[in-house]
């Protein structure tokens, strides 16, 4: 198990091992955080095996990025269904054929 990122060699991407944990890979490209993450479904027994919950780590990273005023791009499988809801002020509209919103989706937004 785990997560990975594939990128063009010429990009100045660095890994932040201190911010990484199981299923959370934290990279930086200049002043942007790039996060590759897997969040098992909320009810999954997988959470018992984590030393650091990837949900908690994502929350910490969002706080850190806000404190440092660094944008953060998150990619991965978050098991978060958000339907057509959007987050933030004046976000671009979203049109998804999946209209279901789950609790993880709501908390992610």
């Amino acid at each position: 198990g785990g997560v990975a990122a594939v990128f063009r060699k010429h990009l100045p991407i660095t890994k932040h091992p201190d911010l990484c944990s199981d299923d959370v890979l934290v990279l930086a490209l200049n002043d942007v955080f790039l996060v590759s993450i897997y969040l098992p479904p909320a009810s999954s027994p997988a959470y018992r095996a984590y030393e650091v919950s990837p949900v908690d780590r994502l929350q910490e990273l969002a706080g850190l990025a806000a404190t440092l005023d660094m944008p953060m791009i998150i990619g991965g499988d978050l098991n978060a269904r958000t339907g057509n809801l959007t987050a933030g002020i004046d976000p671009p509209p979203r049109s998804s054929p999946d209209l279901t919103v789950c609790s993880r989706g709501r908390s992610l937004l």
Partner: peptide
């Protein structure tokens, strides 16, 4: 992986 790409992993036991 094509030569112009790199991969960074965070593996889990």
């Amino acid at each position: 992986l094509p030569e112009q790409f790199s991969i960074i992993e965070q593996s889990r036991p």
